[in-house]
Design a binder for these strands. Structure first.
Lengths: 109, 109
DNA sequence: TTTATATATTGCAATATTACGATTAAGTAA
DNA sequence: TTACTTAATCGTAATATTGCAATATATAAA
């Protein structure tokens, strides 16, 4: 069906999955890495940097913004995007907690 | 097109995205959490636990196995699944390194 | 061998995602 | 005003994902 049955899972499980899903595309990984690297506002040079069509990059930016990982502010004709540090930290904590599950007692197979 | 242009990105970016993508479904998050919780082999009770069809769970297990996050061994008629601790640690390191990018110098917008 | 149980695979329908070109919107410069 | 620049949105095609029923496979028990 292509439709995820979110009602079968806990809020936490759905949230982890949503965060991971947004990161689960190399273009969005590249955008985030570039924003971290530049460490300041960036706009349409992401299109040159990444090499996908302008409309495609715009769509990925929209998804990242929708998840709250980045924020954008209009600067004249261009738009300045950057990491939303507060939300990034929150997201990082959620993911880290999931990833940090103790593996040492795992005594099977 | 629905087709990701992986050739536009670095191996690292593609790898991060692939890992995140596998985690990007609540059923797979639930499976992983259950395997951690039980801390031992588990088989078809994942179907009862999660409440999706057997074939659906089997497919998700296949994807997790394909990414190397879990491994399974046949035990009679059932199959014992568990976290692949070595690969989990590797994966965790890759993701943590990505998530840990320094946010403090971010002075924009 | 037959039957039962557990898991994997196949085939399919519904929906989602990715990507792009074309267009629109909104600001700037002339 | 018009022309230009930048980014968002729309429409669309191609592909991917999700989920299930049905079937296949493989082992165990009778």
């Amino acid at each position: 069906m292509g439709l995820i049955k979110t009602e079968k899972f806990t809020n936490q499980q759905n949230e982890i999955a949503l965060i991971a899903k947004v990161i689960g595309h190399p273009a969005r990984v590249a955008i985030l890495q570039h924003l971290f690297k530049i460490n300041a506002c960036v706009c349409g040079d992401l299109v040159d940097e990444i090499g996908l069509a302008q409309s495609t990059i715009s769509q990925h930016l929209k998804e990242l913004k929708h998840m709250g990982l980045i924020k954008g502010s209009v600067e004249g004709t261009s738009v300045c995007y950057c990491i939303d540090t507060e939300n990034w930290s929150k997201m990082k904590q959620i993911m880290t907690q999931f990833l940090d599950q103790d593996v040492s007692n795992n005594t099977c197979c």
